[in-house]
Nucleic acid binder design. Structure first.
Lengths: 306, 306
DNA sequence: ATTCCATTGTTGTCCTGGACAAACAGATTG
DNA sequence: CAATCTGTTTGTCCAGGACAACAATGGAAT
């Protein structure tokens, strides 16, 4: 089979694949000398797959807090070393039992076995109960799957498979727990540009279990719509989730705007790995990068409201 | 409440909201005189909400096949007239019973009643059976919800609500229908850039019901991954869905590439409104803009394979 | 030593204006 | 009526420049 289809990617394709904008790709090229795409017969940039892979790795390191000047021009070997060290720096969660499920999950994903995966996870849920399942199993699993994808061990569709299985599980759990008269009433969603919705589902499961009423709007809700929905549902709290990939610079302004549009009486809880690097949020806005802090926040809310 | 937060949007925000790229926004400005954004204190474009709404409308008309020179510079009144006429041109599906559910669904969405919506849809599913529910109820409902959103009657989060409810319903149905030994084995997904996944779920439900084995990879799977998954799952058919908003120019090249990467023995069925305007697909590739054509294709496949 | 502030460097995003292939519409021909 | 040709439209890419927001740095003050 000849490669009758050219294996290089256009700048637009690279933007889509890596999440790095065209402007930034061009700037890095002049500033750091990498990427160094070929040119096609029209003089347009043509990125070979190796460079795209390296860009993916660079993106991952940047999400972990590194700065471009340090890594973009770095050699392949050093880059891999950095990636390994940043990966080792994740002890995260109670270890032990989780690692079994981790290995098995990755195995099933590689074998493309959605039914088996769902069954296995459901069994784990029944064994541990929702709370420990979410905190001790799912949280590290998410990391493991994300890492495996970044390392190229899983394709994106295998990550989708995982996401679907977990969503299905959590939705069913939340569904059976929800009670429209419960308090506080909590709205959960993500802002536009943020596609990762597992976090809010996990939080919704935890909070529903503790007797809160959770409404999930799914991902990517404009601030305006959040405010409108919050009013319509008469909620007490709005939960937002920011993944590590969310442009950090946009978080605080967005929180400030939402803060202004919601009445003073509605709290905002901002969670997810992207919220960990922040300081000084607006009034009545709480940062909780770790999942279990949502439970603490719920306790405090209850204490404050009789 | 003063508007202490400026109500205008940056060019990046407009790109996100409308799906029109920055380059195109700037070109339209010089070519047609619209949009005509204000400038902020740094000289950067600041789009007022009215212009963004109009851009949304323009995008919709372009998706319906109109060309920018005709509509971008057009007056507000003419634009609205065009929108109405293009909307009236949709008779679609057996009418009658569907309209009741339609009205009720929109009502429930406006009232933000997810539980009620799910219950109502489920009742309809039980009443009609999966096949008629999908073809006669869901298909027109999708259009109605899309239209209502484009007309500004629904917020994006209300569309999410709808999507979630339908997904939940269909997933459960498919789940109970799936049998790993059934044939043909069918893989369903969408290409990157295509976010609308309801179509493939609907097709999966129909085909599962007729005894096919369906594997859904969710949305936005790169061609490479599709080929890999198709081999791993040993499938007979790959179903792709293209919404009307998918850049038409990219469909045929993508199909050709996938065609090349799959073996000769795997068929491709391309569906969704975006596939309606195409001609001359690659070999062993079938276009089926309408949902019920998937059933015909299944029949033919069975006839051809004993 | 630690905290604070000011200065300096880095970095993503936006800008203008130009080029061009691919898609299209419409006229012309078989 | 179908097919081919031709001029126009249109989305995407390019280069190179500007700049605010952010991060790092190096003292000065506690």
């Amino acid at each position: 089979m000849e490669s009758s289809v050219s294996p290089t990617l256009s700048i637009a394709a690279v933007e889509r694949e890596t999440g790095i904008s065209k402007d930034v790709l061009r700037k890095w090229e002049t500033r750091y000398g990498f990427p160094a795409p070929l040119r096609d017969s029209f003089g347009e940039r043509a990125y070979p797959p190796e460079q795209v892979n390296r860009l993916r790795l660079i993106k991952r390191l940047m999400d972990a807090g590194m700065r471009p000047a340090r890594i973009v021009a770095e050699s392949e070997a050093n880059l891999n070393a950095l990636a390994l060290s940043s990966q080792a720096a994740r002890p995260r969660g109670k270890q032990g039992s989780a690692t079994d499920v981790e290995a098995m999950t990755l195995e099933m994903l590689r074998n493309e076995d959605p039914a088996g995966l769902r069954q296995r996870l459901y069994r784990e849920l029944l064994r541990l109960g929702v709370e420990r399942f979410v905190l001790d199993t799912l949280a590290p699993l998410n990391h493991a799957v994300g890492e495996a994808w970044a390392r190229g061990e899983l394709g994106i569709h295998e990550e989708h498979l995982y996401t679907e299985a977990v969503q299905w599980l959590l939705r069913n759990a939340i569904d059976n727990l929800s009670d429209a008269r419960a308090t506080p009433r909590i709205l959960l969603t993500t802002l536009p540009e943020e596609q990762h919705g597992l976090g809010i589902l996990m939080v919704a499961a935890l909070l529903s279990l503790r007797g809160a009423y959770c409404i999930s709007l799914g991902t990517q809700t404009p601030v305006q719509d959040i405010a409108q929905a919050a009013a319509a549902h008469n909620v007490d709290v709005v939960v937002l989730s920011f993944s590590i990939a969310y442009p950090q610079r946009r978080i605080l302004p967005a929180l400030a705007e939402l803060r202004q549009r919601l009445g003073e009486n509605i709290e905002i809880w901002a969670g997810g790995a992207g919220s960990a690097r922040l300081h000084s949020p607006p009034a009545h806005t709480r940062l909780q990068p770790d999942m279990d802090q949502a439970l603490a926040a719920l306790g405090e809310w209850r204490a404050a409201h009789q």
